[in-house]
Amino acid sequence: MTVEPALSATALVKNFGSKRAVNGVDISVPRGSIYGILGPNGAGKTTTLRMLLGIIDPDSGDRELLGTTRPRTASNRIGYLPEERGLYPGMKAREAIAFMGALRGLPWAEGRSRADLLLADAGLGHAANDKIKKLSKGMAQFVQLLGSIVHRPELIVLDEPFSGLDPVNQERLEALILAERDRGATILFSTHVMGHAERLCDRLAIIASGRLRYEGSVGEARATMPMQAHYTPRDNGEALAALLPADAVRENGGYVFNVPDSGMEALLAMLLESGHGIAGLSLERPSLHDVFVKLVGEETVERMESEAEEAA
């Protein structure tokens, strides 16, 4: 059974002067799923989200959101957390959430009541009457997040939602995303942290330099690369390396290499017969990190990881 997409785009292109920020991106986000857009800073993730939401128009390409080709007409059915955070500092947390709901058509009294429930569920009930300027940066960011979902939208779009959150609030956010998905909402979020994408996403798109490098499930992404063998010998003599596949590399007293196309049986028999033996052996699919390195390059991944550490 085909699931109708909550939003989709074909061949999206956006230029800013002489710079092409997005270059022919295609995505399709199934209803009721968690979908991630993964890529380094400057990859075109935010520009893609803004085109999908109708905040800016593409120079070319087509998009459809919740059944309409005019995204802004569906704004009350969408919850959006932009990359640039901002709340009125003199507002109390409860009132800030209710205010954001009112902007989407939610009655004020209902917004305040829902705000109390959302804050309590997130473990922040004690902060309901605190002014935004008195909250920590992470708590204020979480209040803005709650304001983006208080009207119970069909589609929730979060631009780098984990950026700047401490580990406790990151866990709260992951739990909230899963709860909203279980409620029936579709969640689309951008991130440059692979761990969040790997844990949460049903499907994802990998974007680098404005181009789509991959689209599909995490499992399908990992299946694009061969299984890896982690082998530890009993006897790590000098002649061992010559028996292993050419791509074998030393790691933690053993070797890691791609499982040969012919399988492991012949290689294992040779290792046993040679006397090197087997102290440990495991076969694993490559991680999303490994796939990402293959698609965008190790230098880009190292830069992403450095940026994620600085933002934490």
Rank of each mutant, 00 (worst) to 15 (best):
A223Q: 13
G111T: 01
T232V: 12
E310Q: 11
S306I: 00
S274H: 11
I132L: 12
A269T: 14
V143Q: 01
Y35R: 06
R213I: 06
K133E: 15
E84W: 00
V293Q: 06
Q141R: 14
S287G: 13
P71A: 06
L106E: 11
A266E: 14
L178C: 04
I207C: 09
H151N: 05
D26H: 13
A96N: 07
L158E: 07
I37Y: 07
D26Y: 09
T48S: 13
F292R: 01
G263C: 12
H151F: 02
A43W: 10
R85S: 05
G17F: 06
E238S: 14
N258S: 15
S8N: 05
G123P: 05
N129Y: 09
P71E: 07
R172K: 15
F16H: 11
G184S: 00
S274M: 08
T73P: 00
P286W: 11
V22Y: 04
T2H: 13
R112Y: 03
G44E: 10
L243I: 11
S274C: 07
P82S: 12
E273A: 15
L204T: 00
Q228S: 12
V22M: 07
G111P: 08
A175T: 10
R234Q: 12
G105M: 08
G254K: 02
V13C: 08
E284H: 14
S274Y: 08
P167T: 02
P30V: 07
A93T: 04
L124D: 02
S190F: 09
L244Q: 03
A185L: 02
R199Y: 04
H151L: 00
S217P: 02
L106K: 10
D182Y: 00
F189K: 08
P161V: 11
D247L: 12
E64D: 04
H230V: 14
F257R: 11
Y88C: 09
L87S: 06
M227R: 15
A102T: 14
K131C: 13
G216V: 04
N76F: 03
S60E: 09
G195N: 04
D130W: 10
A205T: 12
Y80L: 03
D59C: 01
T47P: 03
T73I: 10
T46H: 07
M225N: 09
Y214A: 05
E309N: 01
A185C: 04
M225F: 11
M227Y: 13
A241Y: 03
S148R: 00
A122Y: 04
